[in-house]
Nucleic acid binder design. Structure first.
Length: 367
DNA sequence: GTATGCTTTCGGC
DNA sequence: TTACGGCCGAAAGCATAC
């Protein structure tokens, strides 16, 4: 079962200010560059009727909603995260196994709880929706299927406040008319490439020769597409562990190629990410930069250290070095800058000895 | 040839 | 000048180790 909160951020804004329910509502990430620069995060269904979508530039959403009494609000992640925790607590207790995906979705393995009966799963879905409604005054949409892949696609069918059940005998007829884009891993680029091969629907994909698929997309992706088109998926519902990376990105007041200007902007990002890794007691081994250019193309560069570190000065030095090198490789101006750290180890007792052992070893090998 | 590590890009939310 | 966010995980593509 996949449970998906409806238009989550906008619904939460409606929750704390119910008068917004009657008006088109757009929750935005303002970049701070100009009055209205930034992108739409989520919009309520009234706003969507006017063609407002996630990811759209704010000015475009404003144009579409002109003279319609619309409300534009900035995102308030602290509030959303707080509510997310409450929501997930409710979902989790109804699941045998539980897997949160992002801030507004979760997979619930309810096979054991329902003895594998889909009608019991449907009843459980109603219960979950009811509890969410009564306790938190929120709605969600639920997809039920024999595996995560089918459940995820099913959840998308009836929105908002819907339940869609796809039982094994219906899987093929359910999937085959749908666009390949419904499959995770098929975005605009892959869809276009598939269309060139005459593949438009998931049914087309299912009929397509596996070997040709593998020749085009490689073994991993090719077999994945083939299986997915048939509704075959045996990915377990698994509790997500700790984050594997942290990144921070920010938009410059104006485009630039000046290293000092960039570094100034990136310094607070380093500080912020450093706070996070200290709080989590982590050591990073890989550190990278992100540059979004004036043409909105994204470039990244990274460096992996010999031994794990949590040193802020070291972060600054590497970030500066990477941006310096990167600027020499491009003629474009930079619009947004960011950093990313990954490859973590837990800072713990015993770690010190291991680190110094590695240092000794590398000292030895360089002699 | 297979496993593993590193860098970069892609795509979802 | 004035027309686009801020995250995250997964996978491709390449290099190297064994």
């Amino acid at each position: 079962m996949l449970v998906d909160l409806d238009y989550f951020f906008a619904q939460l804004e409606e929750l704390r200010n119910p008068s917004l329910k009657k008006r088109p509502l757009v929750v935005c990430v303002y970049s701070g560059r100009t009055e209205d620069s930034g992108a739409v995060s989520t919009a309520n269904y009234l706003a969507r009727e006017f063609g407002v979508k996630s990811g759209m530039p704010i000015f475009r959403a404003k144009k579409k909603l002109e003279n319609n009494d619309a409300v534009f609000l900035p995102v308030d992640y602290d509030f959303y995260e707080e509510m997310c925790e409450k929501v997930m607590k409710i979902f989790r207790k109804h699941a045998g196994r539980f897997e949160q995906v992002g801030i507004d979705e979760a997979y619930l393995d309810v096979t054991d709880k329902t003895s594998g009966r889909f009608e019991d799963a449907r009843a459980l879905a109603s219960e979950i929706k009811k509890e969410l409604k009564v306790v938190l005054r929120l709605t969600c949409s639920i997809g039920i299927g024999p595996n995560k892949l089918v459940a995820k696609i099913a959840a998308d069918i009836q929105k908002p406040d819907g339940v869609t059940v796809v039982e094994p005998p219906q899987v093929e007829s359910f999937l085959s008319p749908l666009s390949t884009e419904k499959l995770i891993g098929v975005g605009v680029k892959t869809r276009e490439k598939m269309q060139a091969l005459g593949i438009h629907t998931i049914g087309d994909l299912a009929k397509f020769d596996v070997q040709k698929l593998i020749a085009t997309y490689g073994k991993t992706l090719g077999t994945y597409f083939h299986n997915a088109s048939l509704g075959i998926d045996d990915e377990p519902v698994e509790e997500r562990g700790e984050a594997e990376s942290f990144s921070r990105i920010s938009t410059l007041k104006q485009n630039t190629r000046d290293l000092n200007t960039i570094f100034e902007r990136v310094t607070p990002l380093c500080n912020n990410i450093h706070d996070t890794i200290m709080k989590e007691k982590l050591l990073f081994r890989t550190i990278g930069i992100i540059a979004v250019m004036d043409d909105l193309s994204t470039h990244t560069r990274s460096k992996t250290l010999e031994s794990p570190s949590n040193n802020l000065e070291l972060m600054f030095n590497i970030v500066r070095e990477l941006f310096g090198k990167f600027l020499k490789e491009t003629d474009r101006e930079v619009r947004r800058v960011g950093i990313r750290v990954s490859n973590f180890t837990k800072e713990e007792i015993g770690q010190k000895q291991l680190t110094s052992f590695i240092e000794r070893k590398s000292d030895f090998s360089t002699v």
